[in-house]
């Protein structure tokens, strides 16, 4: 017994219009598959704004603090380093020399943190098998996924009729 019905489209605009008409008939869309980001789709589907930026800020803040504490300990506290006669008594006197490293470390951690968070959140890791319903949704086709559980009030035939009205190239179950 398959869990979902898919409608496959060969044009992104037809797909977006299709999504609008499906939603207007009180059918719920579970997900949409597309080889590239589609403008305005997130508004049609009512997807909430990503919180990835907040995590990036937190990773950056952590990295900034870590980098400064680290350099303070290595270069000032544990073994004061004399490099070209630069002051090494306090952190603030030698701060300009530490800024580039702090900046780089902040960027490094924010970028990697974001990428790893994104992978964990979407449960997609390198080497994993593809989970797209149709191989062509990573090439030139677009798919709308309708979950049967989410639309238990609507019969399968009705779903198929609604999907057919949106001009898909193919309707299939998986």
């Amino acid at each position: 017994m398959s869990k979902a019905i898919y409608a496959l489209y060969d044009d992104d605009e037809i797909m977006v219009d299709g999504a609008k008409s499906i939603l207007s008939k009180n059918l719920r869309i579970k997900d949409v598959y597309s080889p590239f980001p589609i403008h305005s789709l997130e508004n049609v589907l009512g997807i909430k704004w990503t919180r990835l930026a907040i995590t990036a800020f937190l990773y950056g803040l952590t990295a900034l603090t870590l980098a400064l504490i680290g350099m303070w300990f290595f270069m000032i506290e544990d073994w004061p380093m004399n490099i070209g006669g630069k002051p090494n008594d306090t952190l603030y006197q030698n701060l300009p020399a530490f800024i580039p490293i702090t900046f780089e470390f902040t960027v490094l951690c924010a970028a990697h943190g974001m990428a790893i968070t994104y992978m964990i959140r979407n449960r997609t890791f390198p080497g994993m098998a593809a989970r797209n319903p149709h191989p062509r949704t990573t090439d030139d086709h677009f798919a709308i996924e309708i979950s049967k559980d989410e639309n238990s009030g609507v019969s399968e035939d009705e779903i198929r009729t609604i999907l057919k009205e949106t001009n898909p190239v193919e309707i299939f179950e998986k």
């Binding site: 070209g84 300009p96 020399a97 800024i99 580039p100």
Partner: peptide, 10 residues
């Protein structure tokens, strides 16, 4: 600003 300052300071 920092680029100019830091190289001269260093």
């Amino acid at each position: 600003f920092f680029c100019q300052f830091m190289l001269y300071w260093y």
